[in-house]
């Protein structure tokens, strides 16, 4: 029993970290524009497809020597972060920015449209002839992401006792990478000029503009950073789950958005907390209620939180702007 609970804790925390990385992108954009970027999950999905393409092209396998593996992996993470950040920035520049003064429904619907387009691109990408994509026969099928990290169980050696727990290097990688990135983001938002500008814009865009802040630039930077986080999350997710699919952005995006709302949307530590809560709830409900009920449990929690505590766990109660 103790082993089961500890194991679900590990699974929940690692899953929660991935949710949190994606949730940060939602929450940062919402905090500034009050706009749900429905396409964010699909940017995450396309970054995972890029990661698989790079793994195939660079021929990374479990046999790759550790030093080379680490260097290649770092390269893939950077490439995916740049790609996803750039894509997210370009979408904002081309699609959302012209709609800043339009009624609220307009950017939301556009984001749904962009999400459709990206999913379709993912479908076509999945039909590519590369061996890692299954040779192009089954474009819509889930793609296996190879296990490139060593599969040694570290639990026994780390805790020094005999245990049935499984703790793989990839679990540690997920947690380590996520913590480092979140700390970096926190430092950026708290202690740099750009971060200060972002906080000011989130508080009141008009006042920020009057103070000489280039709001368009700040929004662009927000999309860029949010996208880059999704890019890192995509690599981490692919290494951890080992399966990617052109519709994975939709489901994981919704969960990540739920995490952002649970933590209090617009609130950066809230997104991390929400991600961890959601990851843990998911792990324990899969174990004790059944995986087939997973969406019902998670969205049920979302509805209950929104009805009884609409501001989320950490959010302050803001009144709707009239």
């Amino acid at each position: 029993m103790f082993d089961t609970i500890a194991q679900q804790l590990i699974i929940g925390l690692t899953n929660g970290m991935v949710f949190a990385l994606v949730a940060l992108g939602y929450t940062m954009v919402y905090g500034i524009l009050e706009f749900i970027n429905f396409a964010h999950g699909d940017v995450f999905m396309l970054a995972a497809f890029l990661a698989l393409t790079l793994v195939g092209a660079l021929d990374v396998t479990q046999q790759t020597p550790p030093g080379t593996l680490a260097a290649l992996l770092l390269g893939i993470v950077v490439a995916c972060a740049l790609f996803a950040g750039g894509l997210n920035y370009a979408i904002d520049r081309v699609v959302y920015r012209p709609l800043r003064r339009a009624p609220k429904l307009a950017p939301l619907v556009s984001a749904i449209g962009v999400s459709f387009i990206l999913q379709n691109v993912g479908l076509f990408w999945g039909g590519s002839a590369m061996a890692v994509f299954g040779g192009g026969g089954q474009a819509a099928a889930p793609k296996a992401f190879p296990d490139i990290l060593p599969q040694t169980n570290l639990a026994a050696s780390l805790f020094g006792v005999e245990t049935k727990l499984t703790l793989l290097p990839k679990d540690l990688l997920v947690m380590g990478a996520s913590v480092v990135i979140m700390a970096a983001l926190y430092g950026l938002v708290r202690h740099t000029k750009l971060g200060k500008a972002m906080r000011a814009t989130a508080q009141d865009p008009n006042a920020a503009r009057l103070m000489g802040i280039d709001v368009d630039k700040v929004v662009g930077a927000t999309f860029l950073i949010g996208g880059a986080l999704a890019g890192v999350a995509a690599v981490v997710y692919s290494l951890y789950i080992n399966t990617i699919h052109y519709q994975m952005g939709y489901q994981n995006g919704l969960y990540a958005f739920t995490a952002a709302v649970v933590g209090g949307i617009g609130n950066i530590p809230g997104a991390v907390l929400g991600g961890l809560v959601l990851g843990l709830v998911r792990a324990f409900s899969d174990q004790f209620i059944g995986a087939q009920w997973q969406p019902a449990v998670l969205f049920g929690i979302l509805i209950v939180i929104l009805v009884f505590r609409p501001a989320g766990l950490l959010g302050s109660t803001a009144r709707e702007k009239v």
């Binding site: 009050e34 749900i36 609220k104 939301l108 919704l254 958005f257 739920t258 709302v261 087939q292 009920w293 997973q294 969406p295 019902a296 969205f299 049920g300 979302l302 509805i303 929104l306 009805v307 609409p310 709707e320």
Partner: peptide, 21 residues
């Protein structure tokens, strides 16, 4: 009584819950 985009998310969640149920 929830604000506009929160209502959107609640109804979206309700749709998913109903499907799974």
């Amino acid at each position: 009584r929830l604000r506009g985009d929160y209502l959107a998310i609640v109804t979206l969640g309700f749709g998913e819950v109903m499907r799974v149920v």
